[in-house]
């Protein structure tokens, strides 16, 4: 099943994300990030940005992908809306190619909840069991 749920954490935000495929796990991670960063979200006009990344492990690729959403929000005031398409491939490195919908931040439509300092590597370990992928993910706030 694709999705996320909150785990208890003494100071920050911990989530368990799970999905039927690695691609869907990245989408679940993006939705968990949105839930953690935004209080409310009224979607309106969106535009597409392409995110192409390479990393040495699948965990680092996931951190890098979510860090892109984080950077776009806090530095460029671009709010992640949804993933249009994502593919993950492995050659010598892990590679993600994604088309992601963003929208310009508007206080009338987007209410921010937490300032996520960073997406951390702490306790991240993508497991593939019983046709399902899952990992913990912790956002430092």
């Amino acid at each position: 099943m694709n999705g996320y749920r909150h785990l208890d954490h003494p100071a920050d935000i911990a989530m368990l994300i799970s999905a039927d495929s690695v691609e869907d796990l990245f989408i679940a991670g993006a939705e968990a990030w949105k839930e953690s960063a935004l209080e409310s979200f009224i979607p309106e006009s969106t535009f597409e940005l392409h995110i192409n990344l390479e990393s040495i492990s699948i965990e680092e690729l996931l951190v890098d992908f979510l860090s892109e959403l984080n950077f776009n929000l806090y530095a460029r005031k671009l709010v992640y809306s949804r993933v249009k398409m994502i593919t993950i491939k492995k050659n010598t490195l892990y590679r993600a190619e994604a088309a992601v919908y963003f929208e310009d931040f508007s206080p009338a439509r987007h209410r921010l909840k937490n300032e996520i300092k960073a997406v951390t590597f702490h306790q991240m370990n993508i497991e593939h069991k019983n046709n399902s992928y899952s990992t913990r993910i912790i956002f430092d706030i």
Binding site: S67, Y74, A75, F121
Partner: peptide
């Protein structure tokens, strides 16, 4: 603020990628 968060993030990633050459065996990626 965001500047410091990004500096830490940038260098953690750099050291994860480039740090292997130093040959350290550490119990935690972070």
């Amino acid at each position: 603020r965001g500047l410091g968060y990004q500096v830490c993030d940038d260098y953690l990633k750099l050291l994860l990628k480039e740090g292997k050459k130093f040959g350290f065996n550490l119990p935690d990626k972070q």
